[in-house]
Design a protein around this nucleic acid. Structure first.
Lengths: 195, 195
DNA sequence: ACGTTTATTGTCATATTTGATAATTTACAC
DNA sequence: GTGTAAATTATCAAATATGACAATAAACGT
């Protein structure tokens, strides 16, 4: 045949670097020049593998959504395997910095801002939020079977909010205390559900 | 003397327009061209009154911080004037869309992302968050005098998180249900405090 | 060694963004 | 109406960002 293709690796490298740029500078600030220097690849190569700027953004959104789906899917599957303490274990994992992915979180924030001028992405992210909220509610349902669904969903929205917030503020630095407080608040919230 | 100065008005117009641009496109996407067309003023005029791009960003940050300080100050002062139900009234106001300022919220999100590459702004915003958290904790303290300070601060962090999160997600549209759930969660959280 | 396919590099034109400053106009006081 | 200070407009150069495509180099099978 011919020279072996490195498309898969390059694509991955480029998207990782693009994530970094978007996390640092926002979607509109993630220029192809920055991407090039961040990835160490020439701008022409980026174009060769990923197409133009818009193609790149679309690829980033898809990557973000699938990665998030995989991560939360694994989390929820693991929790389902537990006999008890699913809810509190979930809090432990959500608020543990060792499980946190700062780049991913910053990308989420950047995409949310980008949604303000791109309604198609806004729709995708709204569903993304709903899915996570539903996932949390499902975990809570297993631990608190007798609680009405509406209450479970309310608490799920609250836990999601506290969790999203503390992660998106992580970039400000020195958030240890605030993170601990947020975590204890999430626990408080869950304990309002009746066993 | 001479032609009357319109510096104050122009400055205000420019900053309002810049807020709009930052809210829609992020800090790095808020170009002077967009600002010019948004404000209806020529780019040269923007420069005349506000200086260069960096001056503009500094002015925006200061404006954001003082506006936020004024808004929350008024809120806390009003709550202080109430005899009881300060805590729940606070929730009513925080989660009422009629009190919400979508532009202001989006600016906050944009500045948080911008903080990732500008540590000086990150420090300002960290203090900004702490101040609001403390303000909420103070309100809670009046309503729940016997509760230990640490508990009050924990709940304050939680309420802040749920509130910040729902406001920053507002841009995704169609967030009525999620907002209602978030609000009920905040109430739940507060009710974990002992009277 | 040769053809083929892909990776990689190089180059160019164009559009956008920004900074800086000159030139002009306007409104007021006298 | 004239001087004056400020507003407004008009340009220019430089830097940056993007798109498109040509040219070269490298790795593989035969």
């Amino acid at each position: 045949m011919a020279r072996p293709s490195v498309k898969a690796e390059r694509t991955e490298e480029i998207l990782v670097a693009f994530e970094h740029c978007v996390a640092l500078y926002g979607v509109e600030g993630a220029t192809l020049e920055r991407l090039a220097s961040q990835s160490g690849l020439q701008r022409s190569l980026v174009r060769h593998y990923m197409g133009n700027r818009n193609d790149l953004i679309i690829a980033l959104v898809n990557r973000f959504l699938t990665q998030s789906s995989v991560t939360f899917g694994e989390l929820f599957n693991y929790l389902e395997s537990l006999n008890d303490d699913q809810a509190l274990t979930m809090i432990e994992m959500l608020f543990d910095t060792s499980y946190m992915n700062t780049t991913q979180t910053a990308v989420a924030s950047a995409l949310i801002i980008y949604s303000g001028s791109h309604l198609d992405i806004a729709n995708l992210l709204r569903i993304w939020v709903q899915d996570i909220e539903n996932g949390i509610a499902d975990v809570l349902k297993k631990a608190y079977e007798n609680e009405p669904n509406d209450n479970l969903q309310d608490v799920a929205a609250g836990v999601l909010g506290v969790y999203f917030n503390v992660d998106s503020l992580e970039v400000l630095g020195d958030m240890g205390k605030f993170r601990a407080r947020s975590k204890r608040s999430a626990v408080r919230l869950i304990k309002t559900l009746s066993q």
